[in-house]
C-alpha cells in the first residue's frame, strides 16, 4: 500500500539525486571523503616509545650502507595536501666502501 505523499517524496528524492549528481555528488559523499582524510591525519602519530623504536630500527638498517649522524636525525609525519607521509631526514657522514650487506 503506497500513500500518495510517499510516491511524491520518492520522485522528489529521485530528482534531487539526479540533480545532486549533476552538481557533483551528494553531501554524504563529500563528508565521507573529508572524514576519511582527516582521520588518516589524526591517526598519523606514534607514541614517543614507538617513535624511538622506529628511529633505532631505521638507523640499524641504514648504517649497513652509510655512516650517518644519528644525533641530528629527524623523523616526522607530514600531513600536507591530501596525503600523509613519514619523512626522515638523516645527515650522511660517509658512504661506506664495502656495505655490510650481501647483495642478492
Amino acid at each position: 500500500m503506497v500513500r500518495k505523499g510517499e510516491g511524491v517524496g520518492a520522485v522528489m528524492d529521485f530528482l534531487q539525486r539526479l540533480f545532486g549528481r549533476l552538481e557533483g555528488g551528494s553531501s554524504r559523499d563529500a563528508a565521507k571523503n573529508r572524514l576519511r582524510l582527516v582521520l588518516v591525519q589524526d591517526r598519523a602519530t606514534l607514541s614517543p616509545g614507538l617513535m624511538e623504536q622506529l628511529k633505532t630500527d631505521l638507523i640499524e638498517v641504514i648504517t649497513r650502507y652509510l655512516d650517518v649522524d644519528e644525533s641530528n636525525m629527524r623523523v616526522e609525519f607530514d600531513n600536507s595536501d591530501a596525503s600523509v607521509a613519514i619523512v626522515a631526514s638523516i645527515p650522511v657522514k660517509e658512504v661506506k666502501r664495502s656495505p655490510e650487506v650481501s647483495v642478492r
Binding site: D13, R28, L35
Partner: peptide
Amino acid sequence: MVKRRDMLDVDDVLEQ
C-alpha cells in the same frame, strides 16, 4: 536524510 544521501549512514561511520 540518509535516503537522499545527505547524511553519513551507519556503514560509513562503522567503516571509519
